[in-house]
Design a protein around this nucleic acid. Structure first.
Length: 209
DNA sequence: CTCCCGATAT
DNA sequence: ATATCAGGAG
């Protein structure tokens, strides 16, 4: 199947109808809470992150309070998210930088975010898009897999797919489309056993079995 | 590229 | 037993 511009538009239309109320799955009340939640979400399900942060944020949800926990207590608090030693280290370093260089606030700047320990391109894109409503498409494992399967955007790296998606999707839909692709990846277009038989996108998907 | 971490699904 | 999970650093 050759995925034309018209077919890509149809793919997006079906995704929109499938996931009409797409929103972030991570729970947060402030940009700082979102930043911490997204750092924790690396190679971890959003469900598990929400369980951990629902216990952590009432104790500490500011750079000062997280820093006051220290490495050992923070490791214990985020243990269930995996990679807990590195994540705790990165979060503490990030809190120090926020306090020293940004007045304790999360910078609304893509480049500045990427300079924070534990924050790469994907996390910076999520924070810019979700917390600051900037046009950005974060390419996580789900977005990468689903975009490639649909050939909505093809690439060997997340950055290539990100650029392809920016061309294929109208800017005003970037935020919604990001969530459509994640929800589709979680619910139907799974990594292991994709449910092509009951997928409404199968007729416009070159990878459908 | 490997390592970081462990629970869960297959 | 192995792949996967809202990745990032060395």
């Amino acid at each position: 199947m050759r995925v034309t511009k018209a077919i890509k538009a149809e793919q997006l239309h079906i995704l929109r109808t499938l996931y009409p109320n797409a929103k972030p799955a991570l729970e947060f009340k402030t940009p700082f809470e979102l930043l911490i939640a997204v750092i924790l979400s690396a190679q971890c399900t959003d469900v598990r992150v929400n369980i951990v942060t629902s216990r952590l944020f009432p104790r500490a949800n500011t750079p000062e309070a997280i820093a006051a926990l220290g490495q050992e207590q923070l490791e214990a608090a985020i243990h269930d998210c995996g990679f807990f030693r590195m994540k705790a280290k990165h979060i503490l370093e990030t809190c120090d930088i926020l306090l020293q260089e940004y007045g304790g606030e999360v910078p609304a700047d893509f480049e500045a975010l990427q300079r924070l320990p534990g924050v790469g391109r994907k996390t910076a894109n999520v924070v810019m898009s979700v917390a600051f409503h900037a046009p950005a498409i974060a390419v996580d494992t789900h977005v990468f897999r689903v975009a490639n399967r649909l050939r909505l955007a093809v690439g060997k790296t997340p950055l290539e797919v990100e650029k392809g998606l920016q061309k294929a999707i109208p800017r005003e839909d970037w935020s919604d489309a990001h969530h459509w692709l994640i929800l589709h990846g979680r619910q139907r277009c799974k990594a292991r056993k994709p449910l092509c038989g009951e997928c409404p996108l199968a007729p416009v998907c070159p990878s459908a079995i």
